[in-house]
Every structure is written in structure tokens, then in C-alpha cells.
């Protein structure tokens, strides 16, 4: 890791705070993806397997929520987490925790909608077998999620891409505090506003590199896994 850091720092002519910024960016985005997966995968699977009134409407809504405007989410989370808001007593505003909450709200619909689609397709294929095996609802969902795991990686990646690239929500709820809530994207926004375009572009390249690296890692893992499990 250390050699990577010095390489990155070389790229940016030795910004000492860069490593902390990159680490915070990854932590916030990955934590948001984990939380969003905990919400989105079971929710998507449940919608895929359940018939209820208004299901079509829920699916349309979920697909629409994939495009939630980050600024609006940021504002809503800001108002909720503000000391004057309903969740103010947690003191989360202007902390990394607030950024994780906002990004979870942004990413969960993406994961839920893509999971719903994936699981529903698989359910059409598996329905007869799983029913004939007399599997209960929990067993069905578990089997479908497990067998769809490689496709679900794509959903998680889509969520991570959204989270890692996002600035509108986290700059509002995180406050872009130096050394505390400053991420790659908010730092890029700040450097741009300071007119330091070369540093902003450099940070942008690092961000793009990280997103590509994470995708490449997940892709490799997916290919290897598929070769084993079909």
C-alpha cells in the first residue's frame, strides 16, 4: 500500500493529506454500499418474489429512485440530521457518518432495483424446482440471492460507482471539513472553486483510477467465481 501512496503522491506532487482523503472516500463509499446492500438486496428480492397490490407501481418508483438527485437527498438528510431536525440528537451532521447515511439513501434504490430485476429473472427459471423442493420463503430468497451473487456484484458496482462519484449530497451533509469530511469529490469541488484546476484534475484522475481499479477487482473476482460455479 505504501508504494501506491507514494506513487499517487508523486502524481500530485506530494500532497500529504491525499492519502487520508482517498481513505475516507473509500470508507464512506464502501460503507454506504454495504449498508445499501443490507437494505437493497433483501428488499429487491422480496419485491421480486411477492405479489401485492401496487407492485407495478412500486417497481416503477424504485427504478425512478435510481435517479434520485443527490442535492435533494443531501438536503433531506441535512434537515433530518440537523440539530433542529428529527435525528439531530445523534450529532451526525458534518461527520463521515452523515455522508454514509446520505449515500446509503442514494445507493439503496439502485441496488434494490437491480436486485429485483436479477432475482426475478432467476426466479422464473428456478420457481418450479424450488417449489417442488418445498422450500419456504426464506430458503427461496437465500437460494436465489446466493445463485445470483455474481450478477448482484454488478448491482453493487453500480452502487459503488454512484457513491464514489457523488459530491452533491455529501458536501451538504459532510460540510467538506478539512481532514475530517473531505473526500476526493468534495476536494475536487473545493480545488476547482479555488481556481487550482491542475490539482482538481489530478484528484479527478486518482478518483477515476480508483473506480477503475475497484471495478477491475470485482470483475476478476466475478469471472473466477463464475468459472467455478457456472
Amino acid at each position: 500500500m505504501a508504494s501506491d501512496v507514494s506513487a499517487l503522491q508523486l502524481v500530485l506532487s506530494g500532497d500529504p493529506a491525499l492519502f487520508a482523503i482517498v481513505r475516507l472516500s473509500l470508507y464512506v463509499s464502501l460503507a454506504a454500499v454495504v449498508l445499501a446492500a443490507l437494505i437493497g438486496i433483501p428488499l429487491g428480492a422480496w419485491i421480486a418474489l411477492t405479489n401485492f397490490r401496487g407492485r407495478q407501481g412500486v417497481i416503477v418508483l424504485l427504478n425512478a429512485l435510481m435517479g434520485l438527485p443527490p442535492v435533494v437527498v443531501g438536503l433531506a438528510v441535512y434537515l433530518a440530521l440537523s440539530r433542529s431536525g428529527p435525528l439531530g440528537s445523534f450529532g451526525l451532521l458534518f461527520t463521515p457518518g452523515a455522508m454514509i447515511v446520505a449515500q446509503t439513501v442514494l445507493v439503496a434504490p439502485i441496488i434494490a432495483a437491480l436486485t429485483r430485476q436479477t432475482i426475478e429473472d432467476l426466479w422464473i427459471e428456478y420457481r418450479d424446482e424450488l417449489t417442488a423442493m418445498n422450500l419456504g420463503p426464506f430458503g427461496r430468497v437465500a437460494a436465489l440471492i446466493w445463485d445470483a451473487r455474481f450478477s448482484l456484484v454488478t448491482a453493487l458496482l453500480a452502487g459503488f460507482g454512484r457513491a464514489a462519484a457523488e459530491v452533491g449530497a455529501i458536501i451538504i451533509v459532510g460540510g467538506n471539513i478539512e481532514g475530517f469530511t473531505r473526500t476526493m469529490t468534495t476536494a475536487i469541488a473545493l480545488e476547482t472553486s479555488k481556481g487550482d484546476l491542475p490539482l482538481a484534475v489530478g484528484l479527478g484522475l486518482v478518483l477515476i483510477g480508483i473506480v477503475i481499479a475497484v471495478n477491475a477487482l470485482a470483475w476478476t473476482a466475478r469471472r473466477a467465481g463464475e468459472r467455478l460455479a457456472g
Partner: peptide, 12 residues
């Protein structure tokens, strides 16, 4: 674990 993710952020 989920709460820990949110509240136990680095530098928190």
C-alpha cells in the same frame, strides 16, 4: 454492525 459503520467512522 450497520450502526458501527455509521458511527465509528475514521477520525470520528
Amino acid at each position: 454492525a450497520a450502526a458501527a459503520l455509521v458511527f465509528a467512522s475514521p477520525a470520528f
